[in-house]
């Protein structure tokens, strides 16, 4: 694949902005790691050696306990299996992931009530929540869902918003007035009201939430796009292009949109983090993804009701700040790199 020299130049400039570049590496690694989360945070073992045979249960169907000589037909409890094998010491072994819990199991103990503080010995590195679920596992899997949610939301919102906004600013007139009315009506229907009302009819799942949020969230970028296009349209280069006989489509896609990219791009990181924040807020209120889906908002809700369980608030808020700050740093670097205007500095 051959890149446009301009694009290479932009990428070089992005690379030269260290704060954004390292944030990009950091977030990229986190996202990659979260795709392989099953290998790091999981209740299933990575490798089991039993009677000379190797098992890799991570991505397979569940393996019944009977397979390993246990007396039950449901899914093997690998943590117990490991302890079992170690006790017997006859050549069988289990390799567990570093954090041997998944996001759904309640690790309840007879001698203490959840939430339990972080403990290395029990491998609950960030403690457990109020139902005894591992906080780290819920953070990691919640992160993966939030990233995916926000990404999907951004793509859908921007396609709709840029299209409509550009047309509004460019064509103006009746089309502009009509959509202004529509946007005004739409923005006034508070999204949270709609979600709450809809959640009384159906339990909102991932795609329901995306659809609702695109339906009621496309106005922001549309409005921005309208204002910029309105201003760009009045500039000479558009007039020149038109005088040369360029069609409306050509003017919009080859002249106006490239010139507005630097402004649009500055909104992307803000939209990305606001997608994550919106999902977290909905989950915090209890109107987001249905429980027991791991989510940051649900952890925040627990932290808010249990001030004494400080590790809940500490871990989820730290995770949130790290992610969102990284996203913002990337955004700032992207803006500087993709903005073709190099700023003059006066001495």
């Amino acid at each position: 694949m051959k890149l446009n020299t301009l694009t290479i130049k932009k990428l070089r400039r992005f690379y030269s902005i260290k704060r954004g570049y390292y944030a990009f590496i950091f977030l990229g690694l986190l996202i990659l790691l979260s795709f392989a989360a099953e290998l790091v945070v999981n209740s299933r073992a990575l490798i089991v050696k039993y009677q000379g045979k190797y098992y890799f249960p991570t991505y397979t169907d569940m393996i019944a306990g009977e397979t390993f000589g246990l007396d039950y037909a449901y899914e093997t409890n690998y943590r117990e299996l490991k302890a079992n094998f170690e006790r017997k010491n006859d050549g069988n072994w289990v390799l567990m992931p570093p954090a041997p819990y998944n996001a759904f199991e309640n690790d309840l103990r007879s001698d203490s009530a959840p939430a339990l503080p972080p403990s290395w010995s029990q491998r609950h590195f960030l403690g457990t929540d109020t139902s005894g679920r591992d906080v780290l596992a819920r953070l990691v899997y919640g992160f993966r869902i939030a990233i995916f949610f926000s990404f999907t939301l951004i793509v859908s919102t921007y396609v709709v918003g840029i299209g409509i906004g550009c047309a509004m600013g460019y064509f103006g007139g009746g089309f502009d007035i009509l959509f202004q009315r529509l946007i005004e009506i739409w923005s006034n229907v508070p999204i949270i009201y709609v979600v709450i009302i809809i959640s009384s009819i159906v339990v909102p799942n991932f795609w329901w939430l995306i659809i609702i949020m695109v339906c009621f969230g496309w106005m922001g970028i549309t409005w921005v796009m309208r204002t910029i296009t309105y201003k760009e349209k009045a500039r000479d280069y558009v007039l020149a292009a038109r005088a040369l006989g360029a069609s409306n489509v050509r003017i919009i896609f080859l002249h106006i949109i490239p010139n507005t990219i630097s402004v649009i791009v500055t909104y992307v990181p803000f939209s990305f983090s606001s997608g994550i924040v919106a999902l977290t807020a909905l989950d915090y209120l209890g109107f987001g993804l249905p429980p027991p889906t791991p989510s940051w908002g649900e952890l925040i809700q627990q932290a808010w009701t249990n001030f004494s369980a400080w590790w809940l608030g500490a871990s989820v808020i730290t995770a949130m700040v790290l992610t969102l700050v990284a996203v913002t740093f990337i955004g700032e670097a992207v803006r500087e790199a993709f903005d073709p205007k190099l700023h003059t500095v006066y001495e």
Partner: peptide, 15 residues
């Protein structure tokens, strides 16, 4: 400051 939404910062400050 931007990264933390106001209400999350509120919870943090409450804690």
């Amino acid at each position: 400051g931007y990264a933390i939404p106001g209400w999350v910062a509120g919870i943090l400050m409450l804690i």
